[in-house]
């Protein structure tokens, strides 16, 4: 088998339109922030190599469009994900209320084998905006994440690059754990073929 094992982690970012999914990804991958808002059309893909302890993994980030008209693409995006990031805007109550719906949507579409152990991360973004405008408190958010099944919770500013690294570090670790759960099965070449030479048609399909 291959001498250097490669690890590819597929990570999906979900959340309402305008909460900063693309900005988070751009900040994490390119350390950049754009003040101009551009709605994502369908999906963006970015790749980043990063170290986790002593190994290097490749994170393939699927940044999806929050707008509803792109939801028909769901199955395509979600299939085979290793971790799902749910993003909301701490200044937007509706985006917070949507979190559960996004999580359910993901679990239904992705058809994951063990929904209760699938790794999610919740990110409350835009904490750089004026404290007075904030409508979801840290306490409230942390409590809801607890109810969602002990989902790790981070508050970030994609604009100022606050806590983004930390959040993605947990994403990568949890995704890696999910990916490595695959290694349990054995890959022995044990599928023997029964040959009956006296038979007529037999195994040969030609």
């Amino acid at each position: 088998m291959s001498s250097r094992k490669k690890t590819l982690l597929k990570v999906i970012i979900l959340g309402d339109s305008g909460v900063g999914k693309t900005s988070l990804m751009q900040q994490f991958v390119n350390k950049k922030f754009s003040h101009q808002y551009k709605a994502t059309i369908g999906a963006d893909f970015l790749t980043k190599e990063l170290p986790i302890d002593d190994k290097t993994v490749t994170m393939q980030i699927w940044d999806t469009a929050g707008q509803e008209r792109f939801q028909s693409l769901g199955v395509a995006f979600y299939r085979g994900a290793d971790c799902c990031i749910l993003v909301y805007d701490v200044n937007n109550a509706k985006s917070f209320e949507s979190l559960l719906a996004w999580k359910d949507e993901f679990l239904i579409q992705a058809n994951v084998s063990l929904p209760e152990t699938f790794p999610f991360i919740v990110i409350g973004n835009k904490i750089d905006i004026d404290e007075n405008k904030r409508v979801v408190s840290y306490k409230k958010a942390a409590q809801v994440c607890q109810q969602l099944g002990n989902v790790p919770y981070f508050e970030t500013s994609a604009k100022d690059g606050i806590n983004v690294e930390e959040a993605f570090d947990v994403v990568s670790r949890n995704a890696l754990q999910q990916e490595e759960a695959n290694d349990e099965f054995n890959d022995d070449y044990n599928d023997a073929i029964n040959i009956h030479l006296d038979g007529e048609a037999g195994n040969c399909t030609c």
């Binding site: 291959s2 001498s3 597929k10 994900a81 058809n111 759960a181 695959n182 599928d191």
Partner: peptide
């Protein structure tokens, strides 16, 4: 790999077949 190995492996859709290709 054989078809049955591939089918078995991808019961988990996030399976990474790349690692099972030898040089």
């Amino acid at each position: 790999f054989s078809r049955s190995f591939i089918a078995r492996s991808f019961t988990r859709a996030n399976f990474n077949l790349q690692n099972h290709l030898s040089s």
